[in-house]
Design a protein around this nucleic acid. Structure first.
Lengths: 168, 168
DNA sequence: AGAATACGTCAGCTTTGTTGACATTCCAAG
DNA sequence: CTTGGAATGTCAACAAAGCTGACGTATTCT
């Protein structure tokens, strides 16, 4: 099929042509557009963007997280995140409570309304992901995740692992 | 390992928990940041952004392509693409020639300078991709591509296939 | 000749990133 | 205990890159 090198031992050499790598980057590009397309539609109906989705997603996954922690995960400046967070608080999707131990911190939670939107967004995104997983099969899914994980920056992988562990 | 359903026939049922799907979306998110990180650094040094990268990438892959065709691939408005293209032409990275058959069209080519930058960008991006491929192995790579392709929109897959065929 | 297509451009708006300045809170050294 | 510095978060202003709408020009198709 592909001309990736293989040996009887399972220890492969992987001769990668420029062509194979180019197709990989293009697959990433096109797939990422599909990946965000469905949530984007829902968001734009309500006047939100992808930045709001990211905030909602990770607050949902780590209720009570601080702004600072979220900054590390999202990799943006606090000023940029603050704008998004402010509108979500104003609209009553996110709750912002002063830190109990350290009063400089703010703990972030989704309200009921926020949880409802999160649900709608992740449902839309998961439908596509689920369809892709089914079409490709379990072995492909395992490979998919393996390559993605290997593609992350060190720092990003730490965040990823932290979230992963918390869930299991 | 994962609790993806499997059967002896190879026809799998794939029970997908919300948790598995959530981790998939997060893997996509973190991996895409890594995927663009290296080119982004090079681009910002020269005052360019990701939009310039995309234009350069696809002009390189389809020399002589028209503006209209590029619009379809990139999925942006002509005004948005035009801004990027203009700066690339002004800086002497892209050549813009009147169509031979249809004089309304403009054919786009990379100049030597443009090709040099494309090389630097794709080298940076490919290094990471190559490392990820090696770490994950050939089987994982095949699965990776399968899932990505299944995740694309119909229209995007057509563009993807068109580029793919041209190369083989 | 007139309609449709391909491309370029002007003007103005939105989202989301950036830096700079500043208030509040905590902590540790003196 | 006070004071100075580090950490956390907010406000203001600006830039990149997307968008819509309107319009002009050249070319092709009917």
């Amino acid at each position: 099929m592909a001309q990736s090198g293989q040996s009887t031992t399972g220890q492969s050499l992987l001769f990668l042509t420029d062509e194979q790598l180019r197709k990989g980057t293009e697959a990433m590009f096109f797939a990422y557009r599909g990946f965000t397309a469905d949530p984007d539609r829902i968001l734009s109906e309500r006047g939100y963007g992808r930045a709001h989705h990211r905030a909602i997603h990770f607050i949902h996954g780590s209720p009570g997280t601080t702004v600072n922690n979220l900054l590390g995960i999202l990799g943006v400046t606090k000023q940029s995140l603050n704008r998004v967070l402010r509108s979500l608080v104003e609209d009553g999707l996110v709750l912002n409570t002063v830190g109990t131990k350290d009063k400089r911190e703010r703990h972030l939670y989704l309200t009921e309304t926020g949880t409802t939107l999160e649900r709608a967004l992740s449902d839309a995104q998961r439908d596509r992901m689920r369809a892709a997983y089914r079409a490709a099969g379990p072995a492909a899914v395992a490979g998919f995740r393996q390559v993605l994980e290997a593609m992350m920056d060190e720092e990003m992988r730490h965040h990823y692992d932290a979230l992963k562990d918390k869930a299991e």
